[in-house]
């Protein structure tokens, strides 16, 4: 199987940049990283097709060795569609996160922080765990309107206690 060095180099660069961005805390960068890694993977699949040849099936009289392997391209098509859907969802998530907290960073788990600090009590779970947060239905829709009204909030308070106030109060 012969592989174009240019394709390999592009793929490697995309992977490197993508992984770097994925490791960031900002969700927007994570999204960009995901897009890069996704495209790098698509290139990787394309590379597995091997030597470039003529289009299969459409023209008569082409020997199978001279055709491009069509399967990787169909795989890529599927992968592109999936990547597209997931990135659309991620964007919605980022927007929602920004609307709620005015920030788009990936937060630590509040309970983990509490455990690390040696406090056995889980902080602020009174708000988070009570029944109105963990039910769905009315509340889900209601959250959107109440949360919107109860903004603008103190940014600092939000980043200190990311899990506080999960539901509509």
């Amino acid at each position: 199987m012969s592989v174009s060095i240019v394709m390999l180099a592009v793929m490697a660069t995309l992977y490197a940049c993508g992984v770097y961005l994925l490791l960031e805390r900002s969700m927007t960068r994570v999204l960009l990283g995901f897009l890069l890694v996704g495209n790098a993977t698509n290139l990787l699949i394309l590379i597995t097709a091997g030597k470039v040849g003529s289009a299969p099936i459409v023209a008569d009289g082409v020997a199978p060795e001279d055709m491009t392997d069509p399967l990787p391209e169909t795989l890529i098509l599927t992968a592109i569609v999936i990547t597209f859907g997931v990135s659309a969802f991620l964007m919605a998530l980022i927007y929602r996160s920004w609307r709620l907290a005015h920030e788009d960073s990936v937060e630590d788990d509040a309970d983990d922080i509490a455990l690390r600090a040696g406090t056995s009590m889980v902080p602020s779970d009174g708000n988070e765990q009570d029944s109105s947060d963990t039910e769905f239905g009315t509340r889900g829709e209601a959250v959107i309107s109440t949360a919107r009204e109860s903004r603008p909030r103190d940014d600092a308070a939000v980043s200190d206690a990311p899990s506080d106030d999960g539901g509509p109060r």
């Binding site: 995901f34 998530l93 929602r96 996160s97 788990d109 509340r139 959250v143 959107i144 939000v158 539901g167």
Partner: peptide, 19 residues
């Protein structure tokens, strides 16, 4: 589901790890 702050935070970790 419902898009509360706690769920968005927890969901973010889950989603990034999954993808």
């Amino acid at each position: 589901l419902g898009g509360t702050e706690a769920r968005i935070r927890a969901g973010t970790t889950y989603i990034v790890v999954s993808i």
